[in-house]
């Protein structure tokens, strides 16, 4: 079990992680979700004792990382697949890590086999594709056969095949009863991989719940209402206490279904050009939830349909 208590990290004027408390339960895949710049990588570096927290602490099975004896046997981590010397072979990279924690040389061959890199084990890691580097990083994380695994955005930049491979691998690790803590800025990805979710924005905890609950909360349905004159309807809706958002000449209403809105429109004698239920995409909903805490707004975020994102929820 990983436990963060009041974890805080300040870099100069940037408060990267702000009084963050959460726990990662044993034997499950827990997603660590937040937009870019939310503080996920910083949190993971603090869990591994690489960065010293400004305040609070992170404990693994009740111990600080730096107090673990031969830590690779307890915690495996892949924070950045490019953290290998480009002129060192994959085998040598794993060999020094194995040696440092008194793991056998045979274990190096085992993990190479596990991630399918046996054939290129003696090639320099600098020539590896991102997918292969990612596998090498996973091999390194698995060296000590640890019960706890941390992965920072493992599917970032991978092709669909690589993404599928990583996803399957995570499930396999969880099936083996390991504790997996994996970060991502894509809710759709996490919905497929994680059973639990720790969601953060701007370094602060937004929620910790099961993925199911979070998705249910996040994909609350909305209704699109379009018409030439919506002022009267709008004030009626306002009185009914629903949430209204403007989108061009339409209203996006959440908290009331099409039938009720239609009746209300009839009562206020409003002409409607469109009244349609919207199944909000998971990504949109997630962006809405973390909306106030997104550090870098992009056009994609503000646009209506993030077409490039994976279709949500299924």
């Amino acid at each position: 079990m990983i436990e963060a208590v009041g974890l805080t990290k300040r870099y100069g004027n940037t408060l990267a992680v702000d009084n963050l408390s959460f726990s990662v339960p044993t034997g499950r895949v827990t997603g660590f979700l937040g937009p870019n710049g939310a503080g996920k990588s910083t949190t993971m570096r603090m869990i591994l004792g690489l960065d010293t927290p400004t305040g609070g602490s992170a404990l693994i099975d009740g111990k600080r990382y730096r107090d673990l004896h031969q830590p690779l046997r307890t915690v495996g981590a892949l924070l950045d697949a490019k953290w290998v010397h480009p002129n060192r072979s994959a085998r040598a990279h794993l060999a020094w890590m194995a040696r440092s924690n008194n793991l056998s040389a045979g274990r190096v061959d085992e993990v190479l086999d596990l991630v399918g890199l046996t054939g290129v084990a003696n090639k320099r890691a600098g020539g590896f594709s991102l997918g292969m580097s990612q596998r090498l990083g996973i091999a390194a994380a698995l060296l000590g056969d640890p019960q706890v695994l941390l992965f920072d955005e493992p599917v970032n930049g991978l092709d669909p095949e690589g993404i599928l491979w990583i996803r399957k691998f995570m499930h396999r690790l969880a099936d083996e009863g390991r504790t997996v803590f994996v970060s991502s800025h894509l809710l759709s990805e996490m919905a497929l991989t994680a059973q639990e979710l720790v969601v953060i924005g701007r370094g602060k905890l937004i929620s910790q719940s099961s993925t199911e609950d979070f998705v249910a909360m996040a994909t609350e349905n909305t209704v699109k209402v379009r018409g030439p004159q919506l002022t009267a309807l709008r004030s009626e809706l306002g009185r009914a206490g629903v949430t209204i958002r403007d989108e061009g000449d339409s209203l996006i209403v959440s908290g009331m279904d099409c039938a009720d809105i239609g009746e209300l429109a009839a009562r206020t004698q409003t002409v409607l050009h469109e009244l349609s239920p919207q199944r909000g995409s998971l990504e949109e909903a997630f962006i809405q939830l973390t909306g106030d805490s997104v550090e870098y707004h992009t056009d994609l975020v503000d646009g209506a349909t993030p077409a490039t994102l994976v279709p949500a929820g299924k």
Binding site: G49, L50, Y65, R66, L68, P71, L72, D80, M97, A140
Partner: peptide, 16 residues
């Protein structure tokens, strides 16, 4: 070169 390529982090991860 360990700082350059980020392996210093693996080093400190393996030996905190």
């Amino acid at each position: 070169s360990e700082y350059r390529f980020g392996t210093i982090r693996s080093t400190f991860q393996a030996a905190p």
